Simulated assay, not measured.
Amino acid sequence: MTGFLAFLGLAAVVIVTPGPDTAVTIRNTLLGSRPGGVMTALGVASGQVIWALATSAGIVAILVASKPLFLALTYAGAAYLVFLGIQALRDAFGSSGVKAHIAQPINPSSRLRPLAAFRQGLVSDLGNPKMAIFFASLLPQFVPAGEASFFSFLLLGLIFSGMTFGWLTLYAVLVATAGDFLRRSAVRRWIEGLMGGLLVAFGIRIALEGR
């Protein structure tokens, strides 16, 4: 029980620390309201479930041990975050973005679709090589040596994924609740610019750390 509580504590610290998944969730909530944020959170959590399955099956250990594969994943994930960041910066400060923000409400037809939000959350998480290292190094510490099995690893991974989904969903609800204020022209451009800058910075940092 003590080991499990320690796992919950460490997982909570890791989950509440802002990162690329948090930035994507906030941005997608602004673009797609609460459904967009919740679906992004679900995509992130689904990515973590995949990491948990891969860790339990020993695939992550192979991935981390193979430098070419790991570098390919690192650079692909970093490029995707930079792409999302540039897209956000363009929407915030580009001429077309400024014109689009003049009107207070977002046209429903231009909202981020839930499926697209889910895909961005999923790819954001799967493209983060730190998740591979994190799952490969964290989960074994909390599974007794004599009890290590596919299902014991998977259970911890599912718990971590569920906690992540709950935390990011809370972000989505809070941002959506303040939606009218946050979608004001100047405020939304500022937040989009901030999220875009963070996503680009996260992408560059991941790429540099993977060298």
Rank of each mutant, 00 (worst) to 15 (best):
residue 142 F to M: 07
residue 173 V to N: 04
residue 198 L to H: 01
residue 50 I to F: 11
residue 16 V to T: 13
residue 72 A to V: 11
residue 32 G to C: 08
residue 97 G to L: 08
residue 2 T to D: 15
residue 179 G to C: 09
residue 106 I to R: 01
residue 57 A to F: 14
residue 197 G to V: 02
residue 74 T to Y: 11
residue 133 I to P: 04
residue 192 E to C: 07
residue 68 P to D: 09
residue 49 V to S: 00
residue 145 A to C: 00
residue 200 V to C: 10
residue 105 P to Y: 04
residue 82 V to H: 06
residue 153 F to Q: 01
residue 165 F to E: 06
residue 168 L to I: 02
residue 33 S to H: 12
residue 68 P to S: 05
residue 76 A to C: 15
residue 1 M to W: 09
residue 184 R to N: 11
residue 124 S to M: 13
residue 135 F to K: 01
residue 209 E to N: 15
residue 137 S to L: 13
residue 126 L to W: 04
residue 170 L to S: 10
residue 44 V to K: 03
residue 76 A to R: 00
residue 12 A to N: 03
residue 19 G to T: 04
residue 129 P to F: 04
residue 165 F to I: 03
residue 26 I to D: 06
residue 153 F to L: 07
residue 8 L to G: 02
residue 7 F to M: 09
residue 104 Q to K: 09
residue 86 I to S: 07
residue 69 L to T: 03
residue 167 W to M: 15
residue 185 S to E: 15
residue 7 F to I: 04
residue 157 G to A: 08
residue 40 T to W: 05
residue 179 G to D: 07
residue 183 R to H: 13
residue 188 R to W: 03
residue 52 A to P: 12
residue 78 A to M: 09
residue 23 A to G: 10
residue 136 A to I: 01
residue 139 L to T: 01
residue 14 V to Y: 08
residue 121 G to A: 14
residue 161 S to R: 01
residue 121 G to I: 03
residue 74 T to D: 14
residue 83 F to I: 03
residue 79 A to F: 10
residue 71 L to A: 14
residue 14 V to W: 10
residue 31 L to A: 15
residue 60 V to E: 07
residue 84 L to F: 02
residue 200 V to S: 02
residue 24 V to T: 11
residue 126 L to G: 03
residue 21 D to V: 09
residue 96 S to H: 14
residue 89 L to Q: 06
residue 198 L to M: 13
residue 144 P to G: 12
residue 75 Y to R: 03
residue 79 A to G: 11
residue 122 L to W: 01
residue 9 G to R: 00
residue 140 P to E: 04
residue 107 N to S: 15
residue 8 L to V: 08
residue 149 S to W: 09
residue 50 I to H: 03
residue 47 G to T: 00
residue 179 G to H: 06
residue 105 P to C: 04
residue 134 F to E: 06
residue 144 P to A: 12
residue 131 M to G: 13
residue 70 F to A: 02
residue 157 G to M: 07
residue 162 G to K: 01
residue 8 L to R: 02
residue 200 V to T: 00
residue 12 A to T: 12
residue 60 V to W: 10
residue 69 L to R: 00
residue 10 L to A: 15
residue 132 A to G: 14
residue 108 P to G: 12
residue 173 V to E: 11
residue 82 V to M: 13
residue 49 V to W: 06
residue 75 Y to Q: 06
residue 117 A to P: 00
residue 48 Q to L: 14
residue 172 A to W: 05
residue 78 A to H: 05
residue 90 R to S: 13
residue 72 A to F: 15
residue 178 A to Y: 02
